[in-house]
Design a protein around this nucleic acid. Structure first.
Lengths: 113, 113
DNA sequence: ACAGGACATCGACTCCTGTCAATATAGACG
DNA sequence: CGTCTATATTGACAGGAGTCGATGTCCTGT
């Protein structure tokens, strides 16, 4: 599966020129994947871990949600191209893709702070 | 109405430390408002206009959607704090809030490129 | 005051999404 | 081989979101 994260943000910020229909339909799923409080926390938790990765078991402990729900959210993040999956033995480790996040930020954000 | 855009992004990026529940629930609605292809294009269209503003009538022409639908989307963007409303006579002009966008970008994006 | 136009709101409909319990898969270890 | 444990998938359900047509509101001319 090819993730939309790769092609999402070219160098033209959102506010410079009108987004094409295709661009909008490419970027929206990325934002939609991020637009959930649980997934935001999941992503943040994974990213801020030592080594930058976490397995489902770690995440399950941190949330008051069922294991299938956590698994579902991680799948959404993965299919959007925001996190990588790595199965090692019985455990599955997730790791954020910084390129995807910074590409998104570059698209949304005006040139600078 | 107080917009969540003001307090959404402090200086701590998403990946530096785990987001609190409160932070996540503050940021998610902002992303949700952005996470729609039509709203992305609306925002982009408004932002890239000369003078940085557009009225509903302008937007209606650019989309193949009913006027109530455009009005609805602009309301969503406005309530999220991403655009300002300004009624001048019969027309209502919308204008993007760059601070809101750059705050979001700062939260999502890693320090660099 | 009245008519017309710009925008908002309402009600209804369909599709999508987050959640869970139950079940499946698949690796590790006896 | 069988069992345990970690994760994924499935099915079901309630609530949310995008869309439209109809209607309401408010300003501007005449």
């Amino acid at each position: 599966m090819i993730s939309p994260a790769e092609t999402a943000a070219c160098c033209a910020p959102l506010t410079a020129q009108p987004l094409s229909v295709e661009q909008a339909e490419q970027v929206a799923p990325l934002l939609k994947a991020l637009a959930d409080p649980v997934r935001l926390r999941l992503l943040s938790l994974v990213a801020s871990r030592q080594g930058g990765e976490a397995c489902i078991c770690d995440l399950n402990e941190a949330f008051d949600l069922s294991q299938p729900t956590i698994s579902h959210h991680m799948k959404v993040l993965h299919e959007a191209g925001l996190v990588d999956r790595d199965k090692r033995g019985v455990w599955v480790y997730y790791r954020v893709r910084p390129q995807a996040l910074s590409a998104l930020a570059a698209l949304i954000g005006c040139p600078v702070p």
